[in-house]
Write a protein that binds this DNA or RNA. Structure first.
Lengths: 232, 232
DNA sequence: CAATAACTGCGTCCGGCGGACACTGTTTCT
DNA sequence: AGAAACAGTGTCCGCCGGACGCAGTTATTG
């Protein structure tokens, strides 16, 4: 499994010399999978469903991909794509742009939240995101472990916002959940006074952009404090 | 569905007057499910498997739980349990203890990472964790939205650490993944200079406690800066 | 006491899933 | 002209979540 994923994501992809030309490509398969997952979620992506989309039978897919897990790994690489060019400015501006870009990826492909839990092997594109974030911290005086920890921290924050953004999305049955939470608070709010007070004084639409920016600034403030302490 | 979850998590649980005594209890079912998920992961938990553990047939479980999703919701509530009593000290000490306790929960029940993606209705225990964290921030001068954002930020960090802790766990096939990542860096490290440099200068075992503490201190530093700025 | 209503647990069946395997047809090498 | 390598397909298996109806049990009602 780990071997298969590694060959799929990192190559080489030996193209056969004899036999019929393959009608599909790895990239085409991954793109079709991303399309389905974007529209209907990761659970709607079955081999059968994907094969129908591609006009083939489901077993033909196994000529390209060893199994579903490897397919998803390929889709992740396709969906996140390569990290964008770093923004101009200091490390703080660069990490801000990086975080917002990552949040955009999660917004466009919410199923990435499901696909990237659990231990897995990262592909070139996913690694390029890490690389860009780490590069922004070069020369700040942080140790290697600290730079890694800082990037993980940023990533977790963006993930968390994406998670709650998906939960509070006004579309679909999620709205019922929010209504249910409201009902819970109306009935049992006495047991949670701080929560009740915080929710009451929070704006209604609970803007996700605000939440992303808030956490981002706290993290960057914390990092800046450490960096200047080290330098000074 | 949302209705079912709400009745399961928040009650009331009307106990029938006529008919045979139920051989099982919701709590017992949830505990058995937690045991299985702890030992073999959430994917190993099927209705069949759970019924075998309880010495019943699988269909009998549907007398207690409407479906698998509701069962998992119940298991989440059981596994996280109620939030521990807040530590003594200021908001910073309290949030530190809270975060470490939450990290402990994720360490004991790694499947919670899988079970708590996606929109869902929180139960009393899960809400009690939010309540405790928010209560620690009472009187800090932060707005309600800011307090909520801060708690989400902390939760995301703990989640992220738990996620990477599970990935780099020395046990099982995850070790192969780390070995594979090392092989990738050996082959393609040239394309990721900052990553290579950070990993080279990081200690080998990449201590998770260090990562948890690092992010925690950055977040709390960032919050403290905001709080003192508001107060001053 | 008997009848009945409510309830638990079980057996059967269904559609869908990921995947193993053997087979046919196609292409390019020796 | 083989023969080897390869693509796509059809069939089959075990497992999953879940719908449904049935048999046995218990407390209420007449």
């Amino acid at each position: 499994m780990a071997d298969d994923v590694m060959r799929l994501l990192w190559g080489p992809h030996p193209q056969p010399k004899r036999g019929p030309k393959p009608a599909l490509t790895l990239d085409g398969i991954a793109r079709a999978g991303v399309t389905i997952a974007d529209a209907e979620g990761l659970s709607a992506l079955s081999m059968q469903r994907l094969a129908e989309q591609l006009g083939k039978t489901k077993m033909s897919l196994y000529r390209y991909v060893p199994g579903r897990a490897e397919l998803v790994a390929l889709m992740v690489e396709t969906a996140i794509a390569a990290a964008p060019e770093p923004a101009a400015g200091d490390w703080r501006a660069r990490l801000t742009g990086w975080s917002r870009a990552l949040a955009g990826v999660f917004a466009r492909h919410p199923w990435l939240l499901d696909a990237t839990v659990g231990p897995r092997l990262m592909g070139p594109n996913e690694l390029s995101w890490m690389e860009h974030a780490l590069a922004a911290l070069d020369g700040t005086g942080l140790t290697g472990a600290e730079r890694l920890d800082a990037v993980v921290l940023l990533t977790s924050h963006v993930r968390g916002i994406a998670l709650q953004s998906r939960a509070t999305g006004a579309e679909g049955p999620e709205a019922q959940l929010m209504a249910a939470l409201g009902e819970v608070m109306r009935k049992h709010g006495d047991g949670y006074p701080s929560l009740l007070s915080a929710m009451a004084s929070a704006a209604e639409p609970l803007a996700q952009d605000q939440a992303l920016a808030f956490g981002l600034e706290r993290i960057l403030d914390g990092l800046e404090a450490l960096i200047t302490r080290r330098a000074g």
